[in-house]
């Protein structure tokens, strides 16, 4: 039997009066995956999530969660997802335990089960010591955990978190990330964020969005791999500028280079290869042949940040050309 993906989105479009928030979006999320939706503010991440959570209807296209259509079978979908909206809205006048029990009952759990699940999620999210406190009196980090606990309380198959670490201090961010990582063991998770390191740390796969489109979708390792093809090589060699220039000019594999003086008698060379060629062995070979001291030889591996900037900028340039 083929296991259906937990999220199937096909040609999803959402237009508001005047502008298109999501345009012809297609992607899938498999069961047990942790997928990050990455994009600048206004890229359409929240809109996509709201459609998946059955809060907003799509203008066209289909979205299915666990095989159920988000518009026609909204009730089935809602039972299967735990959704935490942006800014994590909570009833600030309620106590933590009362709130979670209220949410559990609202989501259709029996009295017994809601009591049990409330205790379980409070334990899991570290809320045991504040269970009697009024939510409005809690710190932002604790509130975030209450939001997460609410998303978990009915044991959903899919958890959708819209910017779960926004506005938290670094210590709280780390705690929330750890929680998300723990969730990944037995839930599918879709997270949106514009913080790149977050995706690198928590997600197995990333969808980069801009202006309502998916620009790149792959595992974080693959994206890094793709980007580092054609990556620059940095070499610090003790030789005269003229010798180095002559050497790089005669190497057919070098597209262009840049030589700058470094401390001591060393020169720092940045070499860009032609195509996806790894220059490191050649550079080493040259240095050995000519007897040049070599103290650094590295190939830059791109961080997700570079990939993000690269992909979104390329898109921006393309748009500019269309306009001309």
């Amino acid at each position: 039997m083929i296991v259906r993906p937990i999220i199937e989105v096909k040609n999803l479009t959402k237009r508001y009066a005047g502008h298109t928030a999501v345009s012809n979006l297609t992607f899938e999320v498999g069961r047990g995956e942790v997928v990050g939706l990455l994009g600048p503010n206004g890229a359409g991440k929240s809109t996509t999530m709201r459609i998946l959570a059955c809060f907003l209807p799509a203008t066209s296209g289909t979205a299915r969660v666990a095989g159920y259509d988000v518009f026609a079978e909204a009730d089935q979908v809602r039972r299967r997802i735990g959704y935490m909206p942006e800014n994590n809205p909570l009833h600030l006048d309620m106590r933590v335990r009362d709130y979670l029990r209220f949410r559990a009952r609202l989501k259709g759990l029996t009295r017994r089960r809601s009591r049990l699940r409330t205790e379980v999620v409070m334990e899991r999210c570290g809320l045991k010591d504040v269970d009697r406190k009024i939510i409005g009196h809690l710190s932002k980090g604790y509130r975030q955990r209450v939001g997460l606990a609410d998303a978990l309380v009915h044991e959903p198959e899919l958890i959708i978190l819209d910017e779960p670490t926004i506005g938290l201090d670094p210590h709280q961010i780390r705690q929330v990330r750890q929680l998300i990582k723990d969730l990944a063991r037995n839930h599918s998770v879709l997270i949106s964020t514009h913080i790149l390191s977050e995706v690198e740390m928590t997600c197995s796969r990333v969808l980069i969005m801009q202006q309502g489109r998916v620009l790149a979708a792959d595992t974080t390792q693959n994206l890094q791999q793709i980007m580092s093809d054609g990556g620059q090589v940095i070499a610090e060699i003790a030789a005269t500028t003229e010798d180095l220039r002559a050497c790089w000019e005669q190497m057919a594999e070098v597209e262009h280079f840049n030589i700058a003086p470094a401390e001591g008698s060393y020169q720092r060379c940045a070499l860009t290869p032609r195509g996806s060629f790894d220059l490191r062995p050649l550079v080493y070979e040259q240095a050995r042949l000519r007897g040049w001291p070599l103290r650094e030889l590295s190939r830059s591996l791109h961080s997700l940040e570079d990939i993000f900037v690269h992909v979104t900028r390329a898109q921006g340039d393309g748009e500019g050309e269309e306009g001309r």
Binding site: A53, F55, R78, P85, P89, L90, H91, L106, G108, D150
Partner: peptide, 10 residues
């Protein structure tokens, strides 16, 4: 904003 959590509950 709790309207969103309310309306996404079943």
């Amino acid at each position: 904003g709790t309207y969103e959590t309310l309306m996404t509950a079943p």
